[in-house]
Design a protein around this nucleic acid. Structure first.
Length: 580
RNA sequence: GCGCUUGUAGCUCAGCUGGAUAGAGUACCUGGCUACGAACCAGGUGGUCGUAGGUUCGACUCCUACCAAGCGCACCA
């Protein structure tokens, strides 16, 4: 709906240019905002105030001119000048009613597919296969996945890339320990990956011979030794299985085919260095091959290096990241590459992106974007740890969330069967963890709190899921199908209009997510929808409405609400329940 | 030392790239179940938007300086 008004305004600006009221070269960004106060109409525009100065007019006079020249449109019932020069638009009720009916009839609930689909590579999750996934991987996995789903829903071609850490010095240690166990005739037990890592680290620290063997194995591995690679592949496939299980449990859409780890670029690394050399970007410094870019200066104003090859000949993560960029830009034809990686790597990505563009690994048309996120902290504001100060395993976190959720659901439903309790509790627990994270601006650190995320009050997953079950329950009672109901809607009560207006804002919310990669705006939106629905539900009887027509109209509005909440949560990777 | 991120109600967080009187939830107080699910709704108390300047019709938002917290800055990723 907003886009209709924007188009009208844009057309009016052109008219005013032709009339010479506005200069030809002004091209203002038309900024239409949703009003907070109903007396300001449905949309407000500040364009007259922006253009007043260049046009040499006072803002209110210009606003008047704009209104005068704007084509009359039956969808707009009134336009008014307010305050210093705002133009307020009042939407015609019948247009709003029509839009609700259309959205209800549309299988995509009124969200148009983008006219310009892009190839968007999204790099997210990317755990280190040497260890078990821990809480540090949670944010990347679920925020990335939410954005991926939103982009796909809009019609973009998304290419998931799970850039797992499956290469590097620590693998020597792991392989040496695997070898030792096999030589001792012990069965290989990788069920407890974390324990395995600790044990091999222990052997590495206590035995010189073991440590030497570990270093040997790294060299063999990297030079393509068959025996080593077999051990390595065995280890990785088991470790990857652990990840895939967690994705499944978390509702993260990554699969085995999305994995393209660091090792995939192993054979490209030398050619990356060669290309940099050819481009005259390479400098030797203290035996290492580096690139110095003018934009990046260190302390004392000295240039900051990007090291691409160690003095010993080994390559670094900057090298494989460059190789990955080249692959994504040139093989995958990416228009955008999004990286959901910890904020602490911002400098690294800034450097690598600048270099990739300079060296031509990615053209200037390829947008490389680091969408960083902050740290997950405990109640004390310090990084989330176990009581003993260790890293929290993701499995343990999810186990606890489920246990707490089951207890919570049980307390609300004393008569529910154990089986149903468990099934519902699991969904609620996982959803609560995901939603708590997704609902906060990713750039900030956030405080992880089980009690808060599992509360039914406030902006939480349980509240939204509850709101959905209330909608579902109405249709259950009316013996109707929420997904197939269609028809005209008549908006009489204020609560109905408020809800309908909010429902119509779904497209612009999605647009923002795809542009900025911030799922928390979708969370706020669904929360607002749920809140307006609760209010509508309280004040407008549905099943016992005064007339059959009103009842059907309200049912349709409720149906679109239910579908919107469900779709919204689905884009966040959160399931809905019909009962809870 | 240089750089990045963050600073908004007691607490947890929004604030739509400069708009109208800074918003939610929580906590606290008040009211509403013989009721489509009260896991809810309606209302109230609570703010020098870290500090100080600047830019302009207008600043939580942009610029500068400072303060505080977290994190990065040469062969780990």
């Amino acid at each position: 709906m907003k886009s209709v008004v924007e188009a009208l305004l844009s057309q009016t600006i052109d008219t005013l240019k032709q009339q010479g009221v506005l200069a030809e070269d002004v091209s203002p960004r038309i900024n239409l905002s949703n009003t907070k106060d109903k007396s300001h109409g449905d949309f407000a525009c500040n364009i007259a105030m922006m253009l007043a100065k260049p046009a040499g007019m006072n803002p209110r006079a210009l606003a008047e001119k704009i209104i005068e020249q704007m084509p009359k449109d039956p969808r707009i019932s009134d336009t008014q000048i307010a305050g210093p020069g705002f133009i307020n638009f009042f939407v015609d009720d019948s247009w709003l009613e029509k839009q609700v009916s259309l959205a209800l009839a549309d299988e995509h609930i009124g969200i148009k597919r983008t006219q310009a689909p892009q190839n968007i590579v999204v790099d997210y999750s990317s755990p280190n296969l040497a260890k078990e996934m821990h809480v540090g991987h949670l944010r990347s996995s679920i925020i990335g996945d939410a954005v991926v789903r939103a982009l796909e829903f809009q019609g973009h071609n998304v290419i998931r890339q799970n850039h797992v850490g499956d290469w590097g010095t620590q693998f020597g240690m792991l392989l040496a320990y695997m070898e030792e166990q096999q030589n001792n005739g012990e069965a290989l037990d990788l069920a407890d990956l974390e324990g395995f890592y600790r044990a091999s680290k222990g052997r590495f620290d206590e035995s010189e011979a073991f440590a030497n063997r570990a270093r040997e194995l790294v060299v063999s591995l990297q030079s393509g030794d068959e025996y080593c690679n077999k051990l390595w592949a065995e280890f990785n496939s088991i470790s990857l299985e652990h990840c895939l299980e967690l994705y499944k449990r978390l509702g993260v859409s990554l699969t085995a085919k999305d994995v393209r780890g660091e090792s995939a670029y192993n054979n490209d690394l030398q050619s990356i260095v060669d290309a940099l050399k050819e481009a005259n970007l390479l400098t030797e410094s203290n035996g290492a091959l580096c690139v110095f870019l003018d934009e990046f200066i260190n302390k004392e104003g000295e240039p900051l290096p990007i090291i691409v090859q160690k003095s010993g000949g080994g390559f670094l993560y900057a090298t494989s990241d460059l190789a990955a960029i080249r692959y994504r830009a040139q093989q995958l034809n990416a228009d955008r590459v999004l990286y959901f990686v910890d904020q602490r790597q911002a400098l690294h990505f800034n450097q690598v992106f600048a270099l990739a563009h300079k060296a031509g690994f990615a053209s200037d048309q390829t947008s490389l974007e680091h969408l960083g996120f902050g740290t997950m902290n405990g109640a004390d504001g310090k990084p989330f740890k176990t009581r003993s100060g260790g890293t929290v395993k993701l499995v343990d976190l999810l186990d606890e969330a489920e246990e707490r959720a089951i207890a919570l659901v049980r307390s609300k439903n004393p008569d529910m069967s154990e089986q149903e309790l468990e099934q519902i509790g699991k969904v609620v627990g996982i959803s609560a963890v995901k939603y708590a994270d997704l609902s906060k601006d990713r750039a900030r650190d956030y405080i992880f709190n089980f009690d808060q995320m599992l509360s039914f009050e406030g902006n939480t997953a349980p509240y939204l899921m509850y709101a959905y079950t209330r909608v579902a329950s109405i249709f259950d009672k009316a013996n109707l199908d929420m997904n197939s109901i269609q028809g005209d809607v008549k908006l009489d009560a204020e609560k109905e209009k408020d809800l309908a207006n909010k429902l119509m804002q779904f497209p612009e919310i999605l647009e923002r997510i795809s542009q900025r990669g911030q799922p928390h705006t979708l969370c706020s939106y669904i929360y607002e929808v749920a809140g307006l629905f609760s209010s509508f539900y309280e004040h407008c009887p549905i099943l016992s409405a005064e007339t059959e027509e009103q009842k059907m109209s309200r049912l349709r509005l409720a149906a679109l609400t239910g579908k919107t909440i469900k779709q919204g949560l689905n884009l966040l990777g959160i399931e809905t329940l019909e009962r809870m």
